[in-house]
Amino acid sequence: MDCQDQFAPGAKELVLLVFGEGELAPEVVRHLHACMICQQRLRQFRQLYLYLLAKLYRSQCPDGLHISLYCADLLEKQEKEQIEAHLRECPLCAEEVAISRRFMADPLLPVAPASPFHDLVPMRGGRQTRLILHHRPRSARWPRLYRSKECELVLSLSYAAPGCCALYGLLSRLGPALNDRLPLEGVQVELLPLETGERKRGVASSGLLLTTTVDRDGRLLFPAVSPGRYTLLLHLPVGDLVIEDLQIDV
């Protein structure tokens, strides 16, 4: 039933009111306050708006997990294409994808960026230093695991004597195909103390260099290491593996 009053708000005015931007003439406002029919109609309009919003709001958006799997490239082709099509329309999902991508661009576990340290490492027999690793302080827990393309090294510490500990490790190859190309037995390992105080990159104090070799089972051991900061060098047949800034404290 429509209100026949001359000051009754029209449909357009009611919809504007619902959107919160209607500027009604004072006599229309007065009428609205007094007229049950017009109030009922305004309520219907508001319900329609809320209904639209509630029904439609993000109703076509993939959920957070699907957005995430999409960003991690873990979806099947069809699902992936559906999300791609949706992203062309929906700025909210596009924004979520951007955030998720940023998050997932991070390494799965924190790795420190390679430093230019290798420029300073003396080359041995013309071999290139291949990989440099160091730990951020926050992940400096023992045991530690380092991985390059070819191999993996687990390092651990144990107490040996007052002010002295044993550093031991296990070097293993990644991938069975490398067995022949990458013999580990006899690999030379050097532990170079870094000068304390103002850190000079790659400058080892002379005289305190510790060396050992990897045994047949890939084990290496420095039985007595004083606390301090070190660089660990493994001279692999394919190149040197450098672990930079190895903090050893008992």
Binding site: R58, D63, G64, L65, H66, I67, S68, L69, C71, A72, L74, E96, I99, S100, F103, M104, L108
Partner: peptide, 20 residues
């Protein structure tokens, strides 16, 4: 890493849904 990627995607899904 594949399993962990999936786990991380699950975490991100939880965070994004909460924000949403």
């Amino acid at each position: 890493p594949a399993a962990l990627s999936y786990l991380r995607a699950s975490l991100n899904g939880a965070i994004m849904d909460t924000l949403r």
